[in-house]
Design a binder for these strands. Structure first.
Lengths: 344, 344
DNA sequence: TTGAAAGCGGTACCAA
DNA sequence: TTGGTACCGCTTTCAA
């Protein structure tokens, strides 16, 4: 047992600085090289069992933790997959998706890091991410232009994937067909005989990335028909919903695609409070298939969205990392299925 | 304009390796030191304007991005604040909290990183975090024991803060009084004349961190009275809710604190479908004050929760970082207010 | 079986 | 005003 100089009793936990592999080596009476071999279970070199024991013991004793930056600096690469942390309040769909992906990438020995990009935009954000030298980056297409992709690749990222409705030059694309969501919902309303269709567009910032293409999809669905689509801005609060409901009759609408289930619930309640019958006077459909929509009366029709399984996406990332030269792939990753319940 | 060797046309974006400050220096015809001075706007040294220009131009030309690991290795510290990424599907409350905190810490020049700890537990997780040498760590108290705190501090973390009902030795504590939530909700039911009170405990994994103390608080609220508290396991799906509702009369309960608003909505709907009157046959109260609870009929009573403002918490982190020796502070950070609406 | 030493990319001190 | 250089912590040949 080696003697460790005791810290003063009143300050047990503020050592001058973190122990390094040199400290471990000193304490174990070996060289830093040996320490590295032992702690990394290097199989290229044979280290005697007693030595291994001494090294491990010393490391434990000192509370040694390797320095990731030093390691990856030396290695020339890391296993870090970087994603920007969402700037919008993430729904259950997205947070489940991220959690699953994290787990799956973890199984592949990657470390997922969600980077809190406080407002940095465009190439500036890409540069900030690139400073960490991640081996892969998965970001919303809206946060990353072709130049951003180039910056990341130049600084060593072996795979860049974007998530969004449009592909970005140079990056693998996970295509979330938001237009398809709007199209599906609106076609459903049309098929059920509705002809004057409102489309809710949230007033909240940050949601336009999703709401704009959904509106576009709605327009596509009625193009060339006798039906019309009317854009309905709506803030996520009861007052605004009530105001919109009060305007319902003058607007002359007979149906609404409410962006998602939350806005749909908000609006449906306001319409009902206004004395309107759902779906008689107004058919309502949301999106996201939240559990809560099933609990309303009438039950809320919705568009069920399916994000890819974490395992599959993790495998895709892994392949992309192993073959950085490959041509960018495009994958549709947003399965959209209309669920007709009672509100439409 | 300097000539750059062209990449082969079919491989435009896979340079052998990332440009370093040495590359920039070479291209600009200066030393690495000068590059560093210029790009960091070092005010201790005067660099001529033409030189600055040449350096900047070269950096732009090469798409140079500094290497964060190398920098922080040399500096001996980073500005990284690490938080574990939530393993449970985060609610709007928590994701708003994180987003706000990220923004506020960003203003203070910190970089927030959510680390995807795939399943690693206890000290193992702490060690993984410590490898990144974050300057501060903010983690759920449930993920971090006293030994974990010690590991982090030993490896250079200047501030460790935990979020949870109980403080952890050596770390600053942000005390989320979940017991108070259960106590408040249950006392409210008691005050409204209810005596046989059910408390929903989600069957889902990962939620017990919150649900256990809420149940405890409920028990505290009725201790020494003639009222009883009954634990009601409930999975988040309609079938299980229906089964529970069917057992309602035999259970002989007259009220329920349903863990949170989502479980409350689920259960309330099931109770109503069972022909029970809310609040007549069963008073229901949730927690979290989701917008959607206000839309139900009857309107859902709830416990409004208030997390601290991101700015305040960021300031606390900053203070803790600047004074690592200070005694651990304890702050109550979960304001809980009962909102009586119509369901109770 | 182990150790000495080079070097990853940047920074900052000291000279020139 | 600029350049040379030591060094941060770790890995990995190459020698011993």
């Amino acid at each position: 047992m080696v003697q460790i100089p005791k810290q003063p009793a009143h300050e047990p936990s503020a050592p001058r600085s973190a122990p390094t592999s040199a400290d471990v080596a000193r304490l174990a009476g070996v060289s830093r090289a040996t320490v590295s071999y032992v702690l990394n279970n290097a199989d290229a070199v044979r280290i005697s069992e007693p030595t291994r024991r001494r090294v491990r013991e010393a490391a434990r004793e000192l509370g040694y933790v390797p320095h990731a930056a030093a390691r990856s600096l030396r290695a020339g690469h890391s296993r870090m997959v970087l994603m920007p942390a969402p700037s919008f309040p993430a729904g259950p769909l997205y947070s489940r998706f991220v959690a699953e992906l994290q787990w799956a990438l973890g199984r592949l020995e990657y470390t997922v890091v969600q980077y809190g990009t406080a407002g940095a935009h465009g190439d500036e954000a890409a540069r900030a991410w690139a400073e960490l030298r991640p081996v892969a980056v998965l970001a919303p297409a809206s946060d990353l232009g072709p130049r951003g992709v180039e910056i990341l690749k130049r600084s060593g990222a072996r795979a860049v994937l974007t998530l969004g409705p449009e592909p970005v030059d140079g990056a693998h694309a996970l295509l979330t067909d938001q237009e398809g969501v709007g199209r599906g919902a609106t076609r459903h309303l049309y098929d059920r005989g509705r002809r004057t269709i409102g489309v809710v567009v949230p007033a909240e910032r940050g949601l336009d990335v999703f709401s704009a293409p959904r509106l576009t999809g709605a327009r596509q669905a009625v193009a060339g028909t006798d039906a019309t689509v009317t854009e309905l801005p709506l803030a996520y609060d009861e007052g605004d919903a009530a105001r919109l409901a009060a305007r319902w009759r003058p607007l002359g609408l007979d149906a609404v695609f409410a962006y998602n289930d939350e806005y749909a619930m908000l609006l449906m309640r306001a319409l009902q409070d206004e004395g309107l019958d759902v779906p008689g006077d107004a058919a309502v459909i949301g999106a996201d298939d939240l559990m809560l929509g099933r609990l309303l009366r009438p039950r809320l029709s919705t568009v069920h969205l399916e994000l890819p399984a974490g395992r599959d996406l993790a495998a895709l990332v892994d392949r992309a990392v192993h073959d950085p030269g490959a041509a960018p792939e495009r994958h549709k990753v947003l399965g959209a299925t209309v669920l007709h319940r009672e509100s439409s």
